[in-house]
Design a protein around this nucleic acid. Structure first.
Lengths: 230, 230
DNA sequence: ATCAAAAGCGGACGATTGTCCGCTTGGTGG
DNA sequence: CCACCAAGCGGACAATCGTCCGCTTTTGAT
């Protein structure tokens, strides 16, 4: 089964410079899309964006989107495998922004660990800006589909980017040697899980600065006091 | 609205020694439960456990559980606000085990950070042993209920315990001073998010040891190489 | 023992998601 | 220009979750 959007093979790949090139057509149109299909896809996306912003993602049903866009259920679900996939398509622009900022940072050079921190900061903003859609994605990806959450192209790109940055940090002597970059990458990304992040923001009353500062300290220096055996 | 189980006020509290005492009646019976109600609750729980283990949590509907237990929908949902709450009740024993092990560790003394690592290890096992139920809980807690995920008594206890351990580690000079223990506690717990953990186990093929080792290194020492400015 | 109130009970019901299957249409080769 | 057929289309349908509301049982006070 295809993942969220784009074919399964479209995950981020390493460029020759070690940079992770973003999945190309993440939320874009399928290659040989028929004109009528393209038209109806645009209409669906527009209507969905509208309704979601009016009444919240949860309060708008797929049937309603279809009706409002003048499109049947079959069509709707052919295009978007489920509600989460539709939301994912709507997230396209924001994700592009993230890719762009990561590219800029990379081109302007600087220590890999600082670039990593920048990415995490962007991710926190992304969480806040797109909270409703991200929440809907999470909800739609339940039951059998649970794995898709971490298999979608966006998360793959994220992980690959972090892995690449960590790898570079080790090579350049910024980070400890022998770091298990794949495993650590997951642990680095985990605290920015949307639900957890929003919970801290909204329920625990933590500001973005506080969350990021704590994370920065933890990631860079760990918990132990200086001088303790390591 | 009540959280998963137990009244809202039943979250972990600090004992006088700084220890976090577990919520008392997490999955137990309500105080003045009527005899017939207790009976039907037991029956429901038994039937659910049975059916879940036979065919998987996702494949068993609430209606079916009700039918098999000889109980109507109203009754079922009065007892368990939703499918996730039922699963949470089924998790009772495992959670008790976690509480017990944490208590034992605490009584046998030892460095706070080591105790923290022990807790994380237990949590990893807990994730594996109870994956299906935990997954179902996650799924059931969507839409409006999204916040409940981190507000339930179990997670509250977990967070409070980690906060207490971190606090002690700071006091006793094990951990850096000025650590934002509340914020850091979330970041410490995040990598053991069930979905993420299982994804690493099953899809990325990482063993428990590898995940925990990476986490341990990250938490204790951070990413930076020794000698780098901190 | 009686009786009233509170708690428990159960099936009908509404809403939502996602699937199915037969009809329509766009685009292409003869 | 036409005919073909895969892709697109749309509404009916099934399954599930969770709610509602009127009936029944338990409990405890008189």
């Amino acid at each position: 089964m295809a993942s969220f959007l784009g074919s399964a093979g479209m995950q981020g790949r390493r460029g020759r410079a070690g940079r992770v090139v973003p999945p190309l057509a993440f939320g874009g149109a399928p290659a040989g899309e028929r004109r009528d299909a393209a038209e109806s896809r645009r209409r669906v996306l527009g209507v969905a964006r509208e309704l979601f912003s009016e009444r919240g993602v949860d309060a708008v049903s797929m049937h309603e989107i279809g009706r409002a866009a003048g499109v049947g259920q079959g069509t709707l679900y052919r295009r978007f495998k489920h509600k989460g996939a539709l939301c994912m398509a709507l997230l396209f622009e924001g994700v592009e922004g993230l890719y762009g900022r990561a590219r800029d940072r990379e081109e302007s050079g600087g220590p890999a660990l600082e670039q990593l921190m920048g990415l995490l900061e962007d991710l926190a903003c992304f969480n806040e800006e797109n909270a409703p859609l991200l929440g809907a994605v999470r909800d739609a990806v339940g039951g059998e589909r649970r794995v898709e959450m971490y298999r979608n192209p966006f998360y793959s790109w994220l992980r690959a980017t972090v892995v690449a940055l960590l790898g570079r940090a080790v090579e350049e002597g910024e980070a400890r040697e022998g770091l298990d970059v794949e495993a650590v990458a997951e642990a680095v990304l985990a605290p920015l899980n949307v639900d957890l992040y929003l919970y801290q923001r909204a329920e625990l009353g933590m500001g973005r600065g506080r969350i990021l500062t704590a994370l920065r300290g933890l990631l860079l220096d760990g918990l132990r006091r200086e001088g303790t055996a390591r």
